[in-house]
Simulated scan of single mutants.
Amino acid sequence: MFLFGTAPVQTGLAQMNTDQKIIAQPAQSHPYAGMWVTADGHVRHKLLPNGRYDEARGTRESAYRGRYEVRGNHIDYWDDTGFTADGTFVNRVLHHGGMILYRKE
């Protein structure tokens, strides 16, 4: 699971909070990181090992970018433009936004 939040930063004797993101689990251990594509190849959804995603649509590379978090077989997305989405992994298939994406090995 990828966890994001705020972490206190120690500065001298004073302690202050920052909006620094923390990744709790090493990316290499995440089973869903990698490329996911629709059957026609139009949507290519790359789950990066650092908790970010990059989605291409047709000829438009990086059409959507943002961060994601996986809990069990559920995935939540927070796009850099402000919208949110979610999906579910079922038997090595990602169901997301009315689309079905398959793992590209």
Rank of each mutant, 00 (worst) to 15 (best):
M1T: 07
F4M: 09
F4Y: 14
G5P: 02
P8C: 02
V9D: 09
T11M: 11
L13C: 00
Q15T: 14
M16D: 00
M16V: 03
T18M: 13
D19C: 04
Q20T: 12
A24G: 13
Q25I: 05
P26D: 06
Q28N: 09
S29N: 05
H30Q: 10
H30W: 01
P31H: 06
Y32V: 08
Y32S: 01
G34R: 12
G34E: 13
M35K: 15
W36S: 02
T38N: 03
A39C: 03
A39W: 01
A39E: 04
D40E: 08
H42T: 15
V43W: 13
V43F: 14
R44Q: 15
L47W: 14
L47D: 04
P49I: 05
P49W: 13
N50V: 11
Y53T: 05
Y53D: 13
A56S: 15
A56V: 01
A56T: 07
R57A: 03
R57W: 11
R57K: 14
T59R: 10
R60Q: 13
S62D: 07
A63E: 08
A63K: 13
R65V: 12
G66A: 13
R67N: 06
Y68M: 06
E69W: 08
E69F: 01
V70R: 06
R71I: 07
G72R: 11
G72F: 08
G72H: 03
H74S: 09
D76V: 08
D76N: 10
D76Y: 03
Y77W: 06
D79Y: 10
D79F: 03
D80F: 09
T81I: 05
T81G: 02
G82F: 08
F83P: 03
T84E: 15
A85F: 11
G87R: 01
G87P: 08
G87Y: 04
N91V: 13
V93T: 14
L94N: 09
H96Y: 15
G98C: 07
K104F: 13
